[in-house]
Simulated assay, not measured.
Amino acid sequence: MNTLKTVLLMTALMVFFVFIGGLIGGRTGMYIAFGMAFAMNIFSYWFSSSIILKMYGAKEVSEAEYPALYRMVRNLSARAGIPMPKICVMQSATPNAFATGRNPKHGVVAVTTAIMGLLTEDELEGVIAHELAHINGRDILIGTVAATIAGAVMMLADMARWSAILGGMNNNDEENQNPLGMVGMIVVSILAPLAAMLIQMAISRSREYRADEEGGHLCGRPLSLASALEKISKGVEYRPMEEARPATAHMMIMNPFSAGKMMSLFSTHPPVEERVKRLREQARGQR
Rank of each mutant, 00 (worst) to 15 (best):
T113H: 04
A146Y: 07
L124S: 11
D139N: 12
T113M: 03
I140R: 00
I149A: 10
G126V: 02
E121I: 07
E125A: 15
T148I: 13
P104M: 00
L118Q: 14
D122T: 13
T148A: 13
T144W: 12
H130V: 01
V109C: 05
G101K: 05
V111I: 10
G151D: 08
A152W: 08
L124K: 08
R102D: 01
V109Y: 05
I149F: 12
V145C: 13
A146M: 13
R138N: 15
L118D: 10
D139P: 08
V109W: 05
G101V: 09
N136R: 15
L119F: 05
V108T: 05
D122L: 09
I140K: 00
N103W: 05
V145E: 09
I128M: 13
T112M: 06
L119C: 12
D122P: 15
A146D: 05
H106D: 15
N103H: 06
E121N: 08
A146C: 12
E121L: 07
L119G: 05
V111R: 00
G101Q: 05
E131P: 02
G151P: 12
R138D: 10
R102T: 09
H134A: 01
R138S: 13
A146T: 14
G137Q: 11
F98V: 00
A152R: 06
L141F: 14
K105M: 10
V127Q: 12
V108D: 00
E131S: 04
L119W: 04
T112D: 03
T112Q: 01
T113E: 13
L118I: 07
I115V: 14
G107M: 04
V109L: 11
T120A: 07
V108I: 13
T113K: 09
I128S: 01
H106I: 07
H130C: 07
I135V: 14
I115L: 06
E123R: 08
G151W: 09
A147I: 11
R138E: 10
L119R: 04
H134Q: 02
P104L: 00
K105V: 09
R102Y: 13
G126A: 03
E123D: 10
I142C: 10
D139Y: 08
H106K: 14
A146E: 07
T120C: 08
T120S: 15
I140V: 15
N136S: 11
I115M: 05
L132P: 09
I135Y: 09
L118K: 15
P104E: 00
L132A: 05
A129D: 12
N136I: 03
T113G: 13
T120W: 10
V145H: 06
P104K: 00
A114E: 02
G126Y: 03
T120M: 05
T100Y: 02
A133G: 06
E121Y: 11
E125N: 15
G107T: 06
G117A: 10
G101A: 01
I128P: 02
I128Y: 02
M116K: 13
N136H: 14
A129K: 11
A129R: 06
A129T: 11
T113A: 10
I149H: 07
I140D: 00
V111G: 01
T112V: 02
I140P: 02
L118H: 09
T100D: 06
G137N: 11
G101L: 02
M116E: 15
R138I: 14
N136V: 04
R102G: 02
A110L: 05
G101F: 09
T144N: 11
N103K: 00
L132N: 12
E131W: 02
I149N: 04
H130Q: 13
D139C: 07
G126F: 02
D122N: 14
K105H: 13
G143H: 04
